[in-house]
Write a protein that binds this DNA or RNA. Structure first.
Lengths: 259, 259
DNA sequence: CGTCTGGTTGATACGACTCAAATTTGGTGG
DNA sequence: CCACCAAATTTGAGTCGTATCAACCAGACG
């Protein structure tokens, strides 16, 4: 799998934003597409770590795109149990098209300090009209989000604790890699063991012991919010990880612009 | 919550198809919208129970709409474990927009004998062009499908066996009710205990014992593929069921046509 | 320098799994 | 209509993975 070059200097809003890099994993965007994306990022908001961006029940007015930091989408039960249903990293849309619905059925919280772009329905519309490549790329983004959700169900329902955790680490590592946020085998990893527990349906205690196991076997290193994966192949094997669901192999290459 | 009237005589393809009934839970479609939907159902395929409609890895060429019967979407692991990630009942799209992707990341199987309509990308496009109400209704359908997936994650990750199973039964009952396929408290229910197990991340043995418990408490009756829910309120309570995520309260009523 | 959040450890409990076998149901052909 | 078979459901006994509860520790921060 061809990893994008590490792009340390990539601008947040420029034509090589995380979003543009991510969409490039689907199809080669035109110069115009990339500039339209960059221009669409006007309304930027900063959110402190552990603050909520939006909460369940709210009326959705904007679509959010992560520019910096990590966010999580979660649902809670009356008895206080909490399930994280998605993580969002730079380049991800939190909720494509939601403004069609009257109320949100989940909350979105900042895992680390966030910079997010807020886009109105109108802005989204003017971004896509007359840009079929970009439109399809955005559809792709939505479909991949749904595919990730399906894989998480497989994770929650069928994998063991160890497999679930390993799977999550790998997924996030690969997603960060496509937007240039890894450097050889490692990446920022702001999740607490509690976050991992809420995402995998385990308890924090069990997550702790399982992480120790992965460390003991020298598969990973994880401390001070830094993750290092020493042997990706062995990790993927142990987690029964199949990257198909991320659809990162330029599946829209027939739409590539050749400029 | 206003349940649609039972529509025993509703035609499969007419303007009161299950699909049209379902979309009406979002917005009142125009005469033209409903006829366009009816006309779009041309390529109908019948699939025997327990046969696959499409399989993982395949190139998606069509979008499927269920006209009759139930289907499931599932993923399997190399060690043979299987997770059902969705059930589809009449009026449901199996995979809105999938043709944007090069390969499917999950399979779709017939639970019972199926009638499905197959629609090409072109047909979908000509269905929506110039019909903003219908377009938004289809977006809504996609968003609700995603919302259901999130709720299932909450189910898999945080609820007990008993809650998971009760939740699944209620969800399917309510979904069938919006397309007129229930009659006072009961509905067809073609899932085997094995299917329920694969959808809830439990074993069939445990599903069996849990169903017995629900029966013993006179909450439900389930035999010969017929489900009866005796006390929906108590069931919803016991499952911590919150119907918000189904977005059935005509959230698109501002788009209603007044003809 | 105390406080707080996140991480670690130990002991114990239980919900759900496993394996194995029996029973019932539904469908099929004679 | 009955005999037969496969699929689905049910039952029992024993086990295990993960949860629970309760301390304790380390580093970050005001």
């Amino acid at each position: 799998m061809a990893a994008p070059r590490s792009t340390v200097g990539a601008s947040i809003v420029g034509p090589t934003s995380a979003l543009a890099l991510k969409l490039a994993a689907f199809t080669k965007l035109s110069e115009d597409d990339r500039h339209a994306l960059a221009r669409a990022i006007t309304n930027v908001r900063t959110v402190d770590a552990r603050r909520d961006l939006t909460t369940e029940g709210e009326r959705p007015r904007f679509v959010h795109v992560i520019l910096e930091g990590w966010a999580s989408a979660y649902k809670t039960l009356p008895d206080g149990k909490r399930q994280i249903v998605a993580f969002f990293v730079p380049g991800d849309f939190c909720d494509l098209n939601v403004y069609v619905l009257r109320q949100r059925d989940h909350s979105i919280g900042a895992v680390s300090r966030l910079k997010v772009a807020m886009m109105s329905p109108d802005e989204m519309a003017s971004l896509t009209v007359g840009r079929p490549g970009l439109t399809q790329a955005l559809w792709w983004e939505g479909l991949v989000t749904a595919a990730i959700q399906r894989e998480w169900m497989l994770n929650l329902g069928q994998r063991t604790a160890r497999e679930r955790i390993a799977h999550l680490l790998i997924e996030l590592y690969l997603r960060l890699r496509t937007v240039g946020l890894t450097r050889d085998g490692g990446c920022d990893f702001p999740l607490t063991q509690n976050d991992i527990a809420d995402a995998t349906g385990l308890t924090a205690v069990h997550v702790n012991r399982t992480l120790q196991e992965l460390r003991r076997e020298e598969l990973i290193e994880l401390e001070r919010k830094q993750l290092q994966i020493f042997d990706l192949a062995r990790m993927m094997d142990g987690a029964m990880f199949n990257a198909n669901y991320l659809h990162l192999n330029r599946e829209g290459r027939h739409l590539d612009t050749n400029e």
